[in-house]
Design a protein around this nucleic acid. Structure first.
Lengths: 248, 248
DNA sequence: AAAATTATGTGACTAGGTTACGGTCTATTT
DNA sequence: AAATAGACCGTAACCTAGTCACATAATTTT
């Protein structure tokens, strides 16, 4: 096979690469304004910052899972969607650590990357999402050069450190009944103060780090006491006050 | 009582205040070189930095407890001694989150201070200790001006975030037998690979966040299997391999 | 040596996690 | 419309862990 034979294909490949590169650029320039409004701390970044090699905006599908090991090269900022950070045991039990939404980042992932540590948790997109992947070296230079950005990252760390400490306390010291009650109240508050919650027992168990059977047992007791009403995939709060009194 | 009557006493007080202020200065200048060697990231701080109003080096006694609420004004760097960070439940059960030693700082305390959050954990000096108290505003300016210092603080956060995540996983997913085994092995490694550990059941329970009775029960089983030997305040490891096999 | 303190042992009970089912609802497929 | 698969829920038996109420043993204090 001579050079002249493969030259056309080579040209094709080169052209495609150029197009991809352009597209990458386009995608980013499309999103720069969105990034600027979502992350005020990045509002004063200049054009050069955005055109750096390796930066990319990527679309994420629901159930896309990021195991921390495989993402060593990028710090991820969430542009859209919600990401559940969780742990999973050898027996398959799960517990949700926290969620990150657009305008946030994940200290645990950054820790894994910068701390040269593997896989401390899993991340899973729950909705269609959009993420900004920042190569470590660019992230470092931004941290050094932009005080506001630095402060933002720092505050994210602080927020999640407090979250983790609170969660740890809950797991170790509180009863599951109390934690279930707290979760239900929170969920009700989030979904427009509705008393009807659409969530399965299995989901609850994955949030709280326990087994589905345990959740079912506890909910059943609450129902017998007239505090909630159960149906398939749905929980109705009947006596919010009583529920709140279970929170420790 | 006339002014002339109390004037001598007033003068005394003023002189004492001046002496105290001088002493403060002296204490700091005494310790600057120690700080520089303990915290390489602060080696390039200049004289002005060290002479700022509000900075203080304080001596800590064993059992001095810092509830995070009361220390809102200072970021604490440990110059000497070891500090146990722990949580305590309403029923009095305790769990150790981690320890900080000289040359380290405590992200949880910094989080509480900068995150305007109260009392997320307790800190207790276990030995005679020395601490550098940094007023928040000075801390902030150092973070802004000194990249190395900033990086140091950031790395402390990363380290402890990973610690917390690991601990959370252990609490939620691992058996106590496994956690006790892991702790004993670790302790043996720390104390010069000796197989004789001087620790009480109650201490173990406070480290691991469980009850003393639970620890006693588990140790008893391990003893019956010939893996360890128990006596008052002392545990001797007989079969290290078997102990390691319990770690999950 | 007696008393007080600290450390450990034990049994009964409750809460929570595991295992192993069986039943029920819902959305598809046939 | 009946059949089927899959998701959801109920339950009982069993094990591990945390709680409570003591008893006992080793050490230190008085």
């Amino acid at each position: 096979m001579t050079l002249s034979q493969i030259l056309p294909q080579l040209l094709d490949i080169i052209i495609i690469m150029i197009i991809i590169k352009e597209l990458k650029w386009l995608i980013q320039s499309e999103h720069v304004s969105r990034i600027r409004s979502l992350f005020p701390s990045m509002a004063d970044f200049n054009e050069e910052d955005w055109n750096q090699e390796g930066l990319q905006v990527v679309q994420m599908e629901p159930r896309d899972i990021i195991e921390e090991g495989q993402f060593l090269e990028f710090v991820v900022l969430i542009l859209d969607g919600s990401v559940r950070m969780y742990k999973i045991s050898t027996t398959g039990r799960e517990i949700t650590l926290y969620r990150i939404h657009r305008g946030e980042c994940c200290p645990l992932m950054i820790s894994s990357i910068l701390g040269h540590s593997g896989h401390e948790a899993l991340a899973c997109f729950e909705t269609v999402g959009l993420a900004l992947n920042i190569p470590v070296r660019i992230f470092q230079s931004w941290i050094d050069r932009y005080p506001l950005f630095r402060e933002f990252i720092f505050k994210e760390f602080i927020k999640r450190t407090l979250d983790l400490a609170y969660l740890l306390d809950s797991i170790n010291f509180k009863s599951i009944r109390g934690r279930v009650s707290e979760f239900l109240i929170q969920l009700a508050d989030q979904t427009g103060n509705s008393d009807t919650l659409f969530i399965t027992h299995n989901c609850l168990s994955m949030e709280l780090g326990t087994a589905r059977e345990v959740i079912s047992r506890i909910l059943k007791v609450l129902e017998k006491r007239g505090i909630i009403k159960l149906s398939r995939g749905k929980i109705t709060i009947r006596d919010r006050g009583a529920l709140e009194r279970y929170i420790e």
